[in-house]
Design a protein around this nucleic acid. Sequence first.
DNA 1: CTTTATTTAGTTGATATCAACCTATATAGT
DNA 2: ACTATATAGGTTGATATCAACTAAATAAAG
Lengths: 152, 152
Amino acid sequence: MSTHLMHAETEPSFETTLLVRDACLCLHAQRAARALARRFDLALKPVGISSGQFSLLMSLNRPKPPSLGSVASLLAMDRTTLTANLKPLERRELVETSHDGADRRVRLLSLTAAGRAVLTKAVPIWKEHHAAIEAELSDSGRLRCDLVLLSR
Amino acid sequence: MSTHLMHAETEPSFETTLLVRDACLCLHAQRAARALARRFDLALKPVGISSGQFSLLMSLNRPKPPSLGSVASLLAMDRTTLTANLKPLERRELVETSHDGADRRVRLLSLTAAGRAVLTKAVPIWKEHHAAIEAELSDSGRLRCDLVLLSR
DNA sequence: CTTTATTTAGTTGATATCAACCTATATAGT
DNA sequence: ACTATATAGGTTGATATCAACTAAATAAAG
């Protein structure tokens, strides 16, 4: 009788492991994200922010202050993660929060002058390093497109 | 005199922000990694492991126990992150460690029978959900290839 | 056979990540 | 107005992530 018909749960073979390791997009995305984050962390160290903080500060550089929830959604990040990420930036007074007059539940996020100054120094660094990374890829536009798809 | 010649550091415009937000592969990779992790976290919840723990357990399913460093390198993860990630798995006795007789610095990692049993249940879930994700992409092989490139 | 450099891993401290649970405010249905 | 539901956000606890520093063992240089 075959194991399939018996519904026996045999342990995954080494071959299965290799297949999963090679194929798993979740793993590959994590690996790539970690490697990229470290790369930008290092590049942005002179400015004193991490890659994630750069993305967050950038997302706050708008004409009108966005709400916490909309930024979390933009970054595909849990609301509570964003709350935590804001703490060190508020402590360093790069970001400040205010309340929406119309809807008192909403917490609006905005950059301080110091926050904008940090971005001013960070953007040229980002441009330089991002260009280097795109040069390593054959079609960065297509990759971006796929990543956006995966983010829903 | 132009601001360029003065090397004046003007604040990044909203247009610059939009460019960076749209283009930044670091941000897109983080977003995709977060979204994929959440998706597999949810799928693997019945088995009691996270997506990261699945990847780690899978990477230990080998004929010969690998060293901590080699696994960290495989996962493109800091050594010390791996040390931390092992703790809950060791506590639950899904993973155990031993020492290499030849080189006493090396810590060898291996699955316990319980760890293999968890993988046995997790692999079919992974296969199902991973197939669904690949179906959403036009060319998953190419994406994988790019992600590997970015992981170095 | 020492002395030095390299490799392997652990510890600490800061930040990041999310689920589960909770509060306050706003909106819809009656 | 009044209750029910939905929405925006916070708090807590567990795990994840990495840099900086430390300790131990090995390998290389002399």
